[in-house]
Design a protein around this nucleic acid. Structure first.
Lengths: 165, 165
DNA sequence: ATTGAAACTTGATCGTT
DNA sequence: AACGATCAAGTTTCAAT
C-alpha cells in the first residue's frame, strides 16, 4: 500500500466511481495503470466490491434504530450472542464494544411494528439482559465510506508505518 | 416503485454489482429493461451512486469509535452542533436522535492519537456538555446497505402503501 | 511496475411492439 | 413500459520499456 494506490482509492471515494477512465482523468495516472492498481487492490482484498448507494427513504426504510444490547455471558459467549443478533431480519450492523462490553445494533426499518418485532427478538435471546433503543430523527451526515473523508496526504502519513506492496 | 424495480434493487444488493448484464442474467429481465429501470431509479434519486467497498483495516483505519455527544442548546441549535460535529476530520456519521436527544457520532480512525484529537474537538464545541465514547472490538456484522437484508417479497409487502411510477 | 495502443466486452441507444 | 438489435463507450489485455 503506497501513495499512488491511496491517491486512486481517494479518487474513487471522492468521485464515487471506480471507472478506470474517470479515475485516470482526475489523477493524471494513465488508465491502464489505474486498472492494474485496482486489480492489485482487489486481489489484496482492499477493495471488496462495488455497489450502489440506495436512498433508504425511497425504498421505505425510513426508520433508523440504534440499540444497545447488554448481555450476561460466560467466556466466548459474546460471539454466539453477536451472531444471533446479526441473524435477526432487518439488523444491518452489529458491533461488540469495549468499555461497557455490550453490543451496538443498527437497523433500518420500515415501520413501528418492525421496531417492536426487533426489540422482542433481542429480548428473546436468553443471554440478553437489557436493551435500550433510540431513533434517529435527522441524519446529519452519512459518509459510510470514510476514505473520502481523509485527504490523501493525511492517509499517506497515517500509513507510513505498515509497508507492503 | 413497484415489484420489478425492487427485484432489480434486491439483485443489485445481493450480487453487489449494478451491471445491467449480470442483473439481467440473474433476474431473467432483459438487459435493456434493466437498464431502463436503473435509469428511472437514478433519476428518482433512489440509487444515488455506485462505489467500492473498502477494507478499512487494510487502509489503516482499524479503530471504530462510537461517541454519544450530549449538547445543551436552544431551539434549532442542534443543526449547528450537528454540522460542526460532521465537519470534524475523521467523522463519518452523525445522527441526531430522539429520546435522550443527543448525537451519535461514528468515526473510523487510524490511531489512539486520532481518537484523542476527535474527543478534544467534540468538547471544543461550546454547546457540548458531555461525551461518552466506546471502541469496537469486533464487528460482528457490517451490512451497510440494508436492501439485501430483506427478501424481495418482504420489501414488496412493506412498500404496498406508497405507489408511484 | 508502467504505459500506449489494440482487442474486446459491456453498457447505452434506438426503433418497434 | 418492454424489448431485441445496433452502436458507442468502456474496460481489459498485450507487448515494450
Amino acid at each position: 500500500m503506497d501513495e499512488k494506490s491511496l491517491r486512486i482509492l481517494s479518487a474513487i471515494a471522492k468521485q464515487k466511481t471506480g471507472s478506470p477512465d474517470r479515475i485516470a482523468e482526475s489523477t493524471g495516472i494513465p488508465k491502464s495503470t489505474v486498472h492494474y492498481r485496482i486489480q492489485q487492490l482487489k486481489e489484496a482484498d482492499v477493495i471488496e466490491n462495488d455497489l450502489f448507494d440506495v436512498d433508504l427513504e425511497a425504498v421505505g426504510l425510513s426508520i433508523t434504530l440504534f440499540s444497545e444490547v447488554r448481555a450476561e455471558f460466560e467466556e466466548g459467549y459474546h460471539e454466539t450472542v453477536g451472531d444471533e443478533l446479526a441473524e435477526i431480519e432487518g439488523v444491518n450492523q452489529v458491533y461488540f464494544t469495549l468499555g461497557d462490553t455490550d453490543f451496538v445494533v443498527i437497523a433500518h426499518l420500515a415501520s413501528r411494528q418492525e421496531v417492536e418485532r426487533l426489540v422482542e427478538a433481542f429480548e428473546g435471546i436468553p443471554a440478553v439482559e437489557r436493551t435500550s433503543s433510540k431513533f434517529v430523527i435527522t441524519t446529519v451526515k452519512d459518509e459510510s465510506d470514510p476514505i473520502a473523508d481523509y485527504e490523501t496526504e493525511t492517509l499517506v502519513d497515517l500509513l507510513g508505518e505498515s509497508g507492503d506492496t
